[in-house]
Nucleic acid binder design. Structure first.
Lengths: 83, 83
DNA sequence: AATCATTATGATCTATATCCGATAAATATG
DNA sequence: CATATTTATCGGATATAGATCATAATGATT
């Protein structure tokens, strides 16, 4: 349910997975988040220099959110991330 | 334990609180995250255009991490955030 | 294989982050 | 208060995001 996001690539993967789960293409996600398809593409491929506000807009459009917590708590979701 | 981070200001507050809890000043956090004191200042005051990699570097230095999850789950941590 | 949909890439432009060096403003501490 | 520490701000330089318009590359579907 909760996905670890320690680097831009993980964030990109999570965004892509959530988008496809909703049956949206990058253009549609762009419309809902006020961004262009090209920008969504960059984020999903793990652009490390993306702006924070851009990431937050994408997460909002997907009805997702960040939480900040201490590292390495050895939860179930950590294991998923290995694969 | 887990803090909601829906906007840059919340992230800045969380960073500042974690830094002070460790007894560090902005310069020290900058050294540990490879950033300048000015940059830490901007992040803590909620700069929305901060780079993703910059935020991730700061969180890493504080031994914190992002998790991504569905919004509004009405957890205890949501209540804290009102104050 | 041919076509349609989707995603990735390219060049140009404007805006702004971050670095760097310096300093002003604000906050502690004696 | 006076001073030392910490945080915020300024100017110049460099790098790159994201918009825009266009197109190439990739993936599906028949």
């Amino acid at each position: 349910m909760a996905d670890l996001a320690r680097d831009p690539k993980q964030i990109g993967n999570i965004v892509q997975r959530a988008r496809k789960k909703l049956g949206w293409n990058q253009t549609q996600l762009g419309e809902k988040s006020g961004l262009r398809q090209e920008t969504i593409s960059l984020i999903e491929t793990g652009n490390p220099a993306a702006k924070l506000e851009t990431i937050l807009a994408v997460l909002g459009a997907l009805d997702l959110e960040f939480q900040i917590m201490p590292r390495s708590k050895g939860q179930a979701s950590d294991i998923e991330d290995i694969f």
